[in-house]
Design a protein around this nucleic acid. Structure first.
Lengths: 114, 114
DNA sequence: TATATACTCAAGCTTATGCTTAACCAAGGT
DNA sequence: ACCTTGGTTAAGCATAAGCTTGAGTATATA
């Protein structure tokens, strides 16, 4: 998961993911819009591949890259879960405030213990 | 967006977000499960706050941290959009293969030009 | 066969990250 | 008043990230 978010934390890499969502591409095709050396692009691709976000296959002298949608799903899943947690909490808080009007609001769950 | 994903790329920071989804907490409360100095925790919190993922407010001598759900939504949104793109592409590819059976499969869109 | 293309690999450099310690300050409790 | 708790600040350090250049290796193409 570390590697996943780390990989997405760079704009060039997000650009590559973006492009690859529209279909597979070669290394130099991915490099074209970027203002950096080919070698740098390859290093970014290694990060993406290590994170599981993309996979690559070399045929002849050209390496073709494609996204690995499952990985993207994993990152999304992590976030979605926390959001769900948060929303459940908001609901409970809403219930609490609805049934105990006018009280100075405190944590309804025992989570601020100390 | 860089800062967002960067912030989520560290396990300690994800742990803090996790905890904060269950409700607000003080700095030392967030520090307790972590094997590092308070100062280090504060630095992580600065990263999280700079990314927009959390907000903090100091009352008396204790700083209370809470998640900023909108930010989490933004990260989720980025991923969801790319997934949608990817799925639309898969659909088009499916249509293509369904109507042109047996052909050695190529990109139906003009995206592998070179 | 010669040349260009599409990478690949290894060094090296600069800046950013993640952490530590130590000194410090302000609020609360006794 | 004194000590403790909760946090802040600054300095320093080791490792990792992002990039470059330069040289090398296959694979196509003319």
């Amino acid at each position: 998961m570390d590697r996943m978010f780390q990989a997405l934390a760079d704009p060039s890499r997000r650009g590559m993911v973006d492009r690859l969502c529209r279909g597979p591409a070669s290394v130099s095709e991915l490099a074209r819009p970027l203002a950096m050396s080919l070698a740098a692009v390859v290093q970014h691709l290694q990060v993406l591949e290590a994170s599981g976000l993309i996979s690559t296959r070399k045929v002849g002298r050209v390496r073709t890259c494609s996204i690995e949608p499952a990985a993207l799903g994993a990152a999304e899943g992590w976030i979605t879960q926390r959001r769900a947690m948060w929303e459940r909490r908001l609901d409970r808080l809403g219930d609490f405030l609805a049934t105990n009007p006018d009280e100075p609001d405190q944590q309804p769950q025992g989570q601020t213990e100390e």
